[in-house]
Amino acid sequence: MRWAPPESRSRHAIRDHIEANLDPVEDHQEITFLSTCYDFPWDTQRALELALIRVFGIARSSRLLARTGEFLERTQKRYDDTVLILSEMLENGYDSERGRAALRRMNQQHRRHTIPNDEYLYTLSTFVFEPVRWNERFGWRPLTEKEKLATYHYWKRVGALMNIADIPPSYEAFERFNVDFEAEHMRFSEDNRKLAVATRDLLLSWVLPGPLRPLGARVAHAMLDDRLLDALGLPRPAPALRRLVEGAIRARVPVLRAMPRRRSPRLLTMKKTRTYPDGYRIEDLGAR
């Protein structure tokens, strides 16, 4: 399934189309696809990487993640598998043939472990709110209320298809759950640190040679808030470095605003991955 964008090349064509023609409940898949794959593909991917690292700050969750060894011993594969499964649902529709296959594969993976419902809920909430928070810090335009609500309804439906119970009934209630859960459960453990370092080093390895990665680590830490850094056992950056890093990311905003919109969606399912350079089958994603 693909959702066609408006024909206009205006930088705000996607936003204007969503505002004029789409409903955040009934059309949540289309809105999420257009917003993510046309207007904010790079930003959403970075935000979801931060969401992954944020989950590592919950000591209760990190024990299981460390015990399986997937994120520590097969970090690249676990990252690629997660991205591809989520992208199959987003880019094709969770009710398409490929979307249903990806959802089925994800549920098969989760059934191997006993995971408390509130940990599922917290992870789901990061998929909703980390892209919103990233946008508030670095977005080239603000997300509209329709886009925010559509994101909530998209992940609420995916959560229901995962048999997650007690999903809060509104965007605001889910955000309160997210904030309260972190306040109660974001605590340091050594497993947190190991998972965060493994994932951070993987992300840095894609863009920096070995000698520059310690500097890259300091830059990466500057993008995380102090409570999360403390929970991960990572050093807090100097305030000046944090301002420099955030300013550098915001410097792209005028350039992005001046560009015409994307003419084709950025589809992660169509890109080569390091784990599957020759393509993949959905049934092969995840742990054996």
Rank of each mutant, 00 (worst) to 15 (best):
V128K: 11
F129V: 04
F129C: 09
E130S: 03
E130K: 12
E130C: 12
P131S: 08
P131Y: 01
P131W: 02
V132F: 10
V132Y: 13
R133I: 00
R133A: 06
R133T: 01
R133W: 01
W134Q: 02
W134H: 05
N135S: 09
E136F: 11
E136A: 12
R137T: 06
R137A: 11
R137S: 12
R137Y: 07
R137G: 09
R137I: 06
R137E: 12
F138I: 00
F138L: 02
G139T: 00
G139D: 01
W140R: 07
W140E: 06
R141G: 06
P142Y: 06
P142H: 07
P142W: 06
P142F: 06
L143R: 01
L143A: 03
L143P: 00
T144M: 04
T144G: 11
T144H: 03
E145Y: 05
E145P: 05
E145N: 12
K146L: 05
E147D: 03
E147P: 00
K148V: 04
L149E: 15
L149Y: 05
L149H: 12
L149Q: 14
A150S: 15
T151G: 15
T151Y: 03
T151V: 04
T151R: 11
T151D: 10
Y152K: 06
Y152M: 09
Y152V: 03
Y152G: 06
H153F: 07
Y154W: 15
Y154C: 02
W155H: 14
W155L: 13
W155D: 10
W155M: 11
K156W: 13
K156L: 12
K156Y: 12
R157F: 08
R157I: 03
R157A: 05
V158S: 05
G159T: 06
G159S: 11
A160Y: 10
A160I: 12
A160C: 11
L161G: 13
M162C: 10
M162Q: 09
M162T: 09
N163S: 14
N163H: 11
